[in-house]
Amino acid sequence: MTDGTKVTNIRIAAVSDLHCTKHSQGALAPLLQQAAQAADVLVMCGDLTDYGLPEEAHVLARELQGVRTPVVAVLGNHDFESGHQTEVTEILTTGGVTVLDGESVEVCGVGIAGIKGFCGGFGRYSLGPWGEAGTKAFVRETLDEALKLESALARLRTPQRLALLHYSPIRATVEGEPLEIFPFLGSSRLEEPLVRYPVSAVIHGHAHKGYPEGLLSNGVPVYNVALPLLRRLHPDGPHFRLIELPGAEA
């Protein structure tokens, strides 16, 4: 017996690794509009541009002009390549995209925390902060990203919470990539705040040849939504991942 209340699910369309170039005009708009029309929120998990150039960001902003649903994103390593990540962020923000870097936002009743993340390896094979200054700085970068994620997660008060990263927090979703590059695809240190402040789902990209889904140690689903991976797995589309989260009772 029901009391007549209805629960409307919140649909999240997710894609990553668009690698928009100066010549991508018209190439990405159909995908982005299709994803947005299927969902209440569109999220993009880094490598939005190919070389992190302002010109590329302007192209992507134009490709997003037909999108009417809220768009939330994080940057990826490619977006940092040319040292213009601040300008890239400003261009996308002006175009209506909420770009997170250690911040959180509530959209359609879902709390979203986002960081780029960093690398370092997984489990017992994670790189430790020992030895040369360069090695310690490398590990510190990952720790700083994990702390940013923890801070963003701690501010969320919504029943449904989502974490966006570019780098993976678990090994399972990078399986399929060459073993030699596993340490550069993510870090287990990014998983620690996700377990301390549980979320409904984790979404990332970066691993183009990885695996589409896995689980955190607490059973929370992790989705790899890199566009090259989605295109390979689903050649006929859709080339985005649709995730549904329970909404509030109406």
Rank of each mutant, 00 (worst) to 15 (best):
T2A: 04
K6W: 01
N9C: 07
R11A: 14
A14T: 10
A14W: 08
D17N: 03
D17Q: 02
H19W: 04
S24F: 04
P30S: 05
L31R: 01
L31I: 01
Q34C: 01
A35Q: 00
A36Q: 04
A36W: 02
V41K: 01
L42Y: 00
C45D: 06
D50Q: 13
Y51A: 09
G52D: 03
L53E: 15
A61K: 10
G66A: 15
V67L: 06
V71A: 00
V72S: 08
A73T: 03
V74F: 02
N77D: 08
D79T: 00
Q85P: 01
V88A: 05
T89Q: 07
T98I: 12
T98S: 15
V107E: 08
G114Q: 09
K116W: 01
R124C: 00
G128I: 07
W130C: 07
E132H: 11
G134K: 13
T135I: 15
R140M: 11
A152M: 14
Q160D: 00
A163Q: 07
A163N: 07
Y167P: 10
P169G: 11
I170F: 10
A172M: 07
T173C: 11
G176T: 06
F182E: 09
R189M: 13
E192P: 04
V195M: 12
Y197G: 04
S200V: 05
S200K: 05
S200H: 06
K209G: 05
G210Q: 13
G210N: 12
L215S: 14
L216K: 13
S217L: 14
S217E: 15
P221W: 11
Y223G: 09
L229H: 08
R231K: 15
D236S: 13
R241D: 05
L242P: 03
E244Q: 14
E244W: 06
G247H: 04
A248L: 11
